[in-house]
């Protein structure tokens, strides 16, 4: 039993809205193209010239009081000892109740086998210029062209979501979105350790969370909103 409690702080003053985190997540976790484990809300308010623009990176909030975990009928969605909200595909029946229960829209369902289009794509993007999906797969010897063997490939009929790169945490590495952020806007670590970077950031700035009124107690915090 560990006494770690992982969390993430996103510094909105540092975030430039480049979406590198979104792309990094896809490549690290073999995320299908139409799924967005790492995502963002774009918000515009006001009337010219008094307008306001917000770019809010989003991901699974790994809620302390996670409704997806509470509602899962097979315990496929569960909380780890470190506070991560994880998903066991071997238990998932694909009822999608977790998607309905999540107020943040960060859980995705594989209607079909992820990346199936690569196997079915018989026409190259440029005739006699580029390879087809199956040709790329045959050459690389991987199930999908941009496959990362460190992470699992999703399967048809089950849900999937951000897991804070749990496979990297096991090797004492940071989540790939944190590593990939060019502005160091994502601060990750153990919230139980008062000296950890996220604890320090939370101590120095008033944190906010998404949909606080839902009572889910998110573990992704936002500081320094404009």
């Amino acid at each position: 039993m560990t006494n770690k409690r992982y969390g993430m702080v996103i510094d909105l003053h540092r975030c430039v809205g480049c979406a590198a985190c979104d792309i990094a997540c896809k490549s690290e976790n073999n995320v299908p193209h139409d799924h967005h484990w790492s995502n963002h809300i774009v918000e515009t308010t006001g009337t010219f010239p008094n307008t306001r623009y917000r770019y809010i990176p989003t991901l699974c909030n790994h809620c302390e009081n996670a409704p997806c975990v509470t509602n899962c009928p097979t315990t496929a969605m569960y909380k780890s000892d470190e506070g991560l909200t994880l998903h066991d595909t071997d238990k998932c029946i694909g009822c999608r109740l977790c998607q309905l229960a999540c107020p943040y829209g960060v859980i995705y369902f594989n209607e079909s086998a992820p990346f199936a289009q690569f196997n079915e794509d018989e026409q190259p993007a440029i005739a006699d210029g580029t390879a087809t999906g199956p040709e790329v797969i045959a050459k690389t010897g991987t199930p999908i062209p941009d496959y990362n063997p460190a992470s699992r490939l999703g399967q048809k009929g089950v849900v999937e979501k951000c897991n804070f790169c749990s496979h990297r945490l096991e090797e004492d590495k940071l989540p790939w979105c944190v590593e990939s952020c060019p502005a160091d806007a994502r601060i990750f670590g153990d919230l139980n350790d008062p000296a950890s970077p996220p604890s320090q950031a939370l101590a120095n700035h008033a944190p906010r969370v998404l949909q606080k009124e839902k009572g889910t107690k998110p573990r992704v915090f936002y500081i320094r909103d404009f």
Binding site: V69, T70, N71, C72, P73, T74, T75, A76, D90, K91, C92, I93, G94, C95, R96, L97, F109, N110, E111, K156, G157, V158, V159
Partner: peptide, 21 residues
Amino acid sequence: LGNQLNVHQMILNVAPTSIMW
């Protein structure tokens, strides 16, 4: 259900917080 072959997991796992269970 997306994964019908796993429906037995409803019996194998106890999920008292889940209304669906």
